[in-house]
Amino acid sequence: MYNLMADILINVCIAFLAGSLLLGLHRKIMARVQSRPGPPIIQYLLHSLKFFFKESSFPKTVSKPFYLAIVVILCGIWVTAVIVTNVVYGSLLLIFGIYAVHKIVEHNSGSSSGSPYGKLSCVRAVYSAASELPLFGGSILVLYLTVHTMDIGQIISYQAAHGPLIFAAPLAALMFFVTIITKAPYSPFGITLGKDIISGFETEHFGFLRGFIMISESMCWYVLLWLFLTLFFGPLSIIGYVIGMIVITCITGLISATTPMLNPNHSVMSQMTITLIGVVGSIALMII
């Protein structure tokens, strides 16, 4: 008999474990490209768990209870995303909403700490929301105009009948892929987590809060990769997903290793340019 809670728990565990291993692989690929041995692939997972046993001081200057609550909210939204994608095959606009709340989490974790690095990350999160959300939104908008639905289940059925959407909406796939690159560690568009502002919005979240953020970010990585593969390559088998996710992680690892972090203005302008080309180009392709 089908047990919904068991389905959800299994999917959340898979998202956390697979996401952690993929992010570990990402770091390994970056290291190897840079002629370093790099940490073992399991390092991200070990760090997430290790941080739970470290001392976690809550600075006196923080905004209570947001400092703690925002980390819980981050986990809550990515659990929601796992449910909407892997369990229910729900609406893409909901995923867009979850992505927007992720930008809010970056904004508030930065500003709630009172640290100048967090404040800079908070301001950069607002700038990058202005460019990342149209990028992701443009991608799902073009998908909507192609398939006339935002429902993931219906998009899967459409692809089973008409073939993978990567051929029908290639620019949407490009925009979605750039979104994935943005969410990768050490990404050229990762201005909220740039090393010039130490750790950005994560700077003042120590100890188990950092481990908690890492768990949520691993689920985020898994969900985004799963969505890209499902929306553009059609219904895949488990082997297909594994190979697809590893390939995407390797490509983003290569890009993160060889590109510098762009300055905030350039990052925003590059993303907006890609969005403009993607949306206008797709509409032009539909008309012609």
């Binding site: 809010i104 404040k119 607002v126 700038y127 959300l133």
Partner: peptide, 25 residues
């Protein structure tokens, strides 16, 4: 608009940003 967020008062800045994003969706 991000220049408006360089001030203390984190919960209040949050609602300014959040309301804009949700209304756009």
């Amino acid at each position: 608009k991000a220049e408006m967020f360089r001030t203390p008062g984190s919960p209040f800045l949050l609602i300014v940003h959040l309301s804009s994003l949700f209304i756009i969706i």
